[in-house]
Write a protein that binds this DNA or RNA. Structure first.
Lengths: 146, 146
DNA sequence: TCGGATGGTTGTATAGTACAACGTGACTGC
DNA sequence: GCAGTCACGTTGTACTATACAACCATCCGA
């Protein structure tokens, strides 16, 4: 017999996967310039004030070749630039360009607006709790398993 | 100045998109036989005790061509069968085969186990609330916008 | 009965991804 | 200081999921 705990887990699983299914499509549709992946990588660069391709790959569990191509695309669009690392000639430190920061801000704003609309009728407390649960879940699923 | 409300929305957005990024990859890795999309479609068929391709497309916001191909793949693997609709010759009602039900159950179980592991140290109440929030969010993002 | 709507398939193009092979540079033990 | 190994990144190749458009077959309402 499924416990209520099992049922909650089942629901969480179903809803999160459903979200995953939709996310890419809607992102692609609303922001043809900056796909979900590109957006995320660029946002990470902005957040970290620059980092290496390898760091991106590790953080997002992507193959380095994938990151290499995504970064190349972002560079072609003028959203990131590569700076040599003085300490290690192999390394290119990636930074958003001013245009990159601009575009990021604009996409983030409109994306935020879409979320705001969906979350418009939530109480502040519910929002805070939902956010907290998601962070907690995210930590659990990125943390290296023992 | 960002309100605490804004910050919660920001966090929810970030975490949900991060989840979306990982979901497909891990699904593909752990269950090469049944991708995230195939799994979801098959699960829907099981849930509904059969439905039409068009219904799947509408429900998951996928193009009918995408569904057509996914279903063809599932059929090739022996997981679904098509039954003619006596009332409408255009329609093929899709049903999981016994093998489909079996595979679905096994993949669902192992997927559930992975979630269980991540959610192991959550209280029952937190799980219930998290599930409720996700359902609420899901309704908001699939509901046709006014 | 004809014209539009509906269900489905197929052709074509694209994005995102992985894996493998490679080149170059850095580090380590001897 | 040199050989072997490791780390960083690129490129070749292949595959999956996806959309859009063109199409065929069927259904239905005026």
């Amino acid at each position: 017999m499924p416990s209520s705990r099992d049922q909650s887990v089942e629901t969480i699983q179903r809803e999160l996967t459903a979200f995953a299914r939709r996310a890419r499509a809607t992102a692609a549709r609303t922001h043809p310039q900056l796909s979900l992946v590109s957006f995320t990588l660029l946002a990470h660069l902005a957040d970290q004030r620059g980092c290496r391709a390898t760091d991106l790959a590790a953080h997002y569990m992507l193959d380095k070749s994938t990151v290499s191509r995504q970064v190349a695309a972002l560079e072609k669009l003028g959203f990131v630039e590569r700076r040599p690392d003085p300490d290690d000639q192999r390394v290119q430190v990636l930074h958003p360009t001013p245009l990159g920061y601009e575009t990021l801000a604009s996409v983030a704003a409109s994306r935020r607006a879409a979320f705001q609309e969906r979350l418009a009728d939530w109480s502040e407390q519910d929002l805070a709790r939902f956010a907290e649960y998601l962070v907690r879940y995210g930590r659990a699923s990125t943390r290296p398993r023992s």
